[in-house]
Design a protein around this nucleic acid. Structure first.
Lengths: 200, 200
DNA sequence: ATGCGTAACTTGACAGCGTCAAGATACCCT
DNA sequence: AGGGTATCTTGACGCTGTCAAGTTACGCAT
């Protein structure tokens, strides 16, 4: 059985997703071609099309997988109970930045315009992505609610704005516009200060 | 002279850039192909290569042009003298968002990973882009300096963090992750409040 | 067990892409 | 007038995503 390259692969779908992630890290989002992917998995060009309608659909599945990881990060980060809130937030920000920096092309894929705008995102992708943000918002609002919020501020809007800050930092870093890593450390701390300052 | 399609175009370089901008708006960043571009300008496939070494170089020129416009916006916005600072900032934020929303694909091109990371940005592009941010930082620091800044905060870092916020908002909007336009209005106002709150 | 429906996979083909190489044309300067 | 050079052209190559049509093998009902 082993070594005789069976006609049916067995679990091609997940093999494709796994190898695609490798290629994504190796050669970036533009370097990921279906033909190469198929070849690396040891299957013909058109085989992937029986598991994904499109290249777009494969990318969506890849992105959804990324959002599942990010969701885990959001719900897990800083659960060590009794730490002060600005420290929890600071740790979370660092973890988020590390998530993006660790696999920049995946992060770009997850949030990139090609998937969300040019073509329609999969239902699965939309679901997990929104759930991911919802969890983030709930988490942040939880942190905020124990302190008093200024009368003019809406907690949900605040959560959105703070996410935008985080996202903007990530993009500026992984796109290579901010280069100096040490600077970014300081900037992110300044961003945390910004988020917390609304509470005093 | 007119109407006999001369062998030499006359001013092909700028014609290319102009039409490229049109195509960018029409069909997005992926829909911009050199071959189509050449055809639309009325010239053969390889003609553009005598004015741009690469497709990459043409994209850089396009992005640089975008940064020149953005720079103008940064230096011009809210110069009506005596308005209160948070109103100046608010207007600037709105103008910046409009700049991005008005031509999303150009914005993506300007800040996108393909240009900055995967391939090396042109010297011209790097220059104007950094000048643009420098002007923004100077501008914001000018606004901040008239008020007192908390002892823990570094004005430059603050400028970088606020730019990240702005940039993050734009990306979330133009990438189609935030969809509701009205919500964004509120979120951006919350972001302004965030930036100003550090001053009290 | 046998036969059939169907899912998984293959090969051939096509149009479109960026770009190398080599040839044609028209302008400018001496 | 003539030669050099910048500008533009056509041909070709390998790559891409994907449509169409053929092949293989698995699973279930008889």
């Amino acid at each position: 059985m082993a070594g005789h390259t069976p006609y049916h692969h067995g679990d091609l779908r997940s093999a494709l997703l796994q190898e695609a992630n490798v290629m994504l890290k190796e050669s970036g989002i533009d370097g990921l071609s279906l033909r190469q992917l198929a070849e690396r998995v040891g299957v013909s060009r058109m085989a992937p099309y029986h598991h994904f309608k499109d290249k777009h659909e494969l990318l969506c599945a890849l992105a959804a997988q990324g959002f599942r990881d990010l969701d885990q990060l959001v719900t897990d980060a800083g659960l060590d109970g009794s730490a002060p809130h600005d420290q929890v937030l600071s740790h979370f920000v660092q973890a988020y930045l590390r998530f993006a920096l660790d696999n920049p092309d995946r992060y770009e894929l997850m949030f990139g315009r090609p998937i969300w705008k040019s073509a329609r995102p999969t239902a699965e992708l939309r679901e997990i992505a929104f759930a991911c943000f919802r969890h983030y918002a709930e988490r942040l609002i939880g942190l905020l609610n124990s302190k008093r919020i200024p009368e003019g501020s809406n907690p949900l809007r605040l959560a959105q704005a703070s996410w935008a800050t985080l996202h903007g930092l990530c993009r500026l870093m992984i796109d290579g516009i901010y280069v100096n890593q040490n600077d970014m450390e300081e900037v992110s701390q300044e961003a945390v200060a910004l988020m917390m300052s609304v509470l005093r």
